[in-house]
Nucleic acid binder design. Structure first.
Length: 305
DNA sequence: AGCTCTTCCTGAAAGC
DNA sequence: TGCTTTCAGGAAGAGC
């Protein structure tokens, strides 16, 4: 699944080939993942790529206005890879793989292809730098740009589970299940901890762990778990460095205890039960007991606020 | 505010 | 062996 390091890897690959190239044609297959397919098909051809940016897991391909268009608005193609999306540059003569749904023909005989078997990805066009900026503005902080103090400030008052907050794109953008689990493992924090109970020191540790994990993953060109590939079609190798994620039953690299899997924040979460002790057993026991009671005798009266 | 459930979709893995 | 069922998962929205 493409998360920040994978998307960053794709973006770097695209930066090596796309800027300066003009899109000479667009072909679309299935379009249910595109906001406005007609607009995309009519507005992209003739435009020249000027730059490529990443906002969290979103890819922003910025175009110059067409030479013949009078309004000097910048124009953006925004792509989210979802679970199985790929953006690759290939020779146009190469046969297209299964599930290739969008083709952007370049002026050098190659084409940018969007391939996505599950079509959980999204694609949209935005007119004007302001629109793109506004879109960018609704996202949370970039994990590699936020300061330790800001990180603390964003999390220390939240009563939600730390894992849920790491995954929340409005809090931080770009972190998904893999890097949430790897960061928490590195910081020795159980995913179900309530953020507000973690205190400044442990939040700082998490901030440091998160940055280290993401930086290392980018260096290794991301994790290829199911089918991530970069813009050239090559897999990453960070999956070999995973300490917790997708390693249920395997030994914790730190202490040898078997990695466990549990549902936290609605997602599979992998952690070491020894290095990452669950939050206060007493509290949990009390909460579980009251849940059990509530289930046995369905809610009597709702408390007013 | 925050949790859970549902929806989207397909391939892989499990079940029979 | 081969067919059928189940499930995962990023994000958004509903309902509680």
């Amino acid at each position: 699944m493409p998360e920040l390091p994978e998307v960053e890897t794709v973006v770097r690959g695209l930066r090596a080939v796309l800027p300066g190239r003009t899109i000479v044609g667009v072909r679309l297959g299935k379009t249910d993942f595109i906001d406005d397919p007609a607009l995309l098909a009519e507005s992209v051809p003739g435009k020249r790529v000027v730059s490529i940016a990443r906002y969290g897991k979103f890819i922003d391909i910025a175009f110059d206005p067409a030479a013949n268009s009078p309004e000097a608005e910048q124009f953006h193609l925004i792509v989210h890879l979802g679970m199985t999306g790929r953006l690759v540059v290939r020779d146009a003569a190469e046969p297209a793989p299964k599930h290739a749904h969008a083709f952007f023909e370049l002026d050098d005989g190659r084409e940018l292809r969007y391939v996505d078997s599950r079509r959980f990805g999204r694609m949209l066009v935005l007119d004007g730098a302001a629109a793109a900026g506004k879109f960018h503005g609704v996202l949370g902080a970039e994990p590699l740009e936020i300061s330790a103090a800001d990180f603390r400030a964003r999390l220390s008052a939240r009563r939600a589970r730390i894992k849920a907050l790491l995954l929340d794109q409005h809090v931080l953008c770009g972190i998904g299940n893999i890097y949430a689990d790897e960061s928490l493992w590195t910081a020795r924090i159980h995913p179900a901890h309530i953020a507000a109970r973690l205190g400044a020191e442990r939040l700082d540790e998490l901030w440091r762990a998160m940055r280290g994990v993401l930086r290392h993953a980018i260096k290794m060109r991301g994790s290829s778990i199911s089918d991530f590939v970069d813009a050239d079609g090559n897999p990453g190798s960070y999956q070999q460095r995973h300490c917790a994620y997708d390693r249920e039953g395997e030994p914790c690299p730190r202490c040898g205890t078997a990695i466990r899997r549990a549902m936290v924040a609605g997602r599979s979460s992998y952690f070491c039960s020894r290095c990452q002790p669950a939050p206060r057993a007493k509290r949990r026991a009390r909460r579980d007991a009251s849940r059990k009671r509530a289930r046995a005798k369905p809610s009597p009266a709702k408390r007013g606020r």
